[in-house]
Computed example of a mutant assay.
Amino acid sequence: MKFKLYNPFDYAQEDFAQLIMESWHYDLIKDGFEVRDVDSGELYISQLRQAPRGVIVSFPVTLQAGEEKTVHIQVVKRNNLKTAYRNDYVGSDRMMDLDVTSDQQPFKITSTYIDTPFVKIEWAKGAGITSWVDKRTKKEMLRQDRNHHAFTPVYDVTHASNVQEMYEVRRKMGRNRKGPDAVISTGVLTNVEVISQGDVYGTVQLTFEVAGCSHYSLLVTAYVNHPRVDVAVRMHKDSVWAPENLYISLPFGSPITSESEQLWIDKMDALTRPRKDQLTGSLADYYCLGEGAAYVTAHDGVAIAMPDTPLIQLGSLNHGFRLLNGDAKLQQDPGHLYAWTMNNYWETNFSATLGGFYEFRYLVAWGEQYHTPEVAMNACRSMNAGILAWRIR
């Protein structure tokens, strides 16, 4: 089987190609395969996983601006094929209470941490993801002053006294988008399951309990040879008539007032620093964005691509007097970053009934190459688009 890969951008793409096939192809390649460049013969490190109604082969690839490549999946019989289907961290008693890794392993996934050559991520029952260390610089990437841990859900609901008050309770919210009696709940990590580990990536599922959702879990995917982590937030949202909000904590970077590390977003492809490149008197709580957000220093940066949730919150999640840009009190507001994932306050671009299954993705990459907002935002754009790949004859 041959696939064509293409980079439509005017800058290089370093990403992971996804070759998608029908489910019956699994029997053809399950015992061994390899992915090669048709022209150069280059062999790519690859990994297989079964997906609903199909099979996906993933491998890292770099494409220069406008470059095309053709790759070929060839059947190769092997006895030691690694797939992303299962691992040995769960014993025959179905308990996951052994750390079977060794110090010689460059890539480890257990029930309490992920450790790659680029990052170590740790979590704790109840708290969630408590540490995210860049192993190149030994720097903790999560803010010390954070109110919530990484990708922890925060839910609030303002109850109406009766059905007739559903409109009135919203009218009284004003710029808070929640009432003074809003009930705020923070997600609690309850369960961890190692899903896969292979030559390209490994995935762990963290399951939380949070009000407003009958299911909320994170699929955290770390890569063997790249400073990047993908997080897929999967949830089954309850249908709630009363006004509600669901936020996801993204506590990377520094306070918004920092001069050494600045937050950048893109608005209609224009790079903007919230609260710095906006009009005096404009709202300083939430912002629409295009591709994502980036924290940039003179030496490095972190890019957070957000393909599914184009609304962020920087202001306090609590009800109170809202501050407009230019207000001196904003100098005391640290500006914690959240993805404002769901709400039923507005009736135009949001459904008034939010119940159902959803998945929202967040793609996080970091390193020295992201020391300018232009490069960091291009990384967000590239990760959101992915590598274009399609099967050819």
Rank of each mutant, 00 (worst) to 15 (best):
Y26A: 10
D27C: 10
I29K: 01
D31Y: 13
G32W: 02
E34H: 08
D37T: 03
D37I: 02
V38Q: 09
D39E: 14
G41D: 02
G41T: 00
G41I: 00
E42S: 10
L43Y: 09
I45P: 04
Q47A: 04
Q47F: 05
Q47P: 00
L48N: 02
Q50A: 11
P52W: 09
G54L: 05
G54Q: 05
G54P: 01
G54C: 07
V55S: 02
V55I: 14
I56Q: 09
I56C: 08
I56E: 10
V57L: 05
S58G: 07
F59P: 01
P60N: 03
V61A: 01
V61W: 01
T62N: 08
L63Q: 02
L63Y: 01
L63H: 02
L63V: 02
Q64Y: 12
Q64H: 12
G66M: 06
E67T: 05
K69D: 01
K69W: 01
T70P: 01
V71F: 02
H72M: 12
I73E: 02
Q74N: 13
V75T: 15
K77S: 11
K77C: 06
K77P: 00
K77G: 08
R78T: 13
N80K: 13
N80H: 12
L81R: 07
K82I: 14
K82N: 08
T83R: 06
T83F: 06
A84S: 12
N87M: 05
N87T: 15
N87K: 05
N87P: 03
N87Q: 13
D88W: 12
D88G: 14
V90T: 13
G91W: 08
G91H: 07
G91S: 13
S92R: 15
D93F: 11
D93Y: 09
D93G: 07
R94C: 10
R94A: 11
M95Q: 13
M96D: 11
L98E: 11
L98C: 10
L98Q: 13
D99Y: 08
D99P: 01
T101L: 06
S102G: 15
D103A: 15
Q105M: 14
P106N: 09
F107G: 02
K108S: 12
T116Y: 01
P117S: 05
P117I: 04
P117N: 06
F118W: 10
F118Y: 15
I121V: 15
I121Q: 02
E122A: 14
A124Q: 14
G126Q: 07
G126V: 03
A127G: 06
G128D: 03
G128W: 04
G128P: 02
W132S: 04
W132G: 00
W132K: 05
V133G: 06
V133K: 15
D134F: 07
K135D: 04
R136N: 12
T137W: 09
K139A: 14
E140A: 10
E140M: 08
E140I: 06
E140D: 08
M141Y: 06
R143Q: 08
R143H: 07
R143D: 04
Q144I: 12
Q144R: 14
Q144D: 10
R146P: 00
N147V: 10
H148D: 10
A150E: 03
A150V: 04
F151W: 12
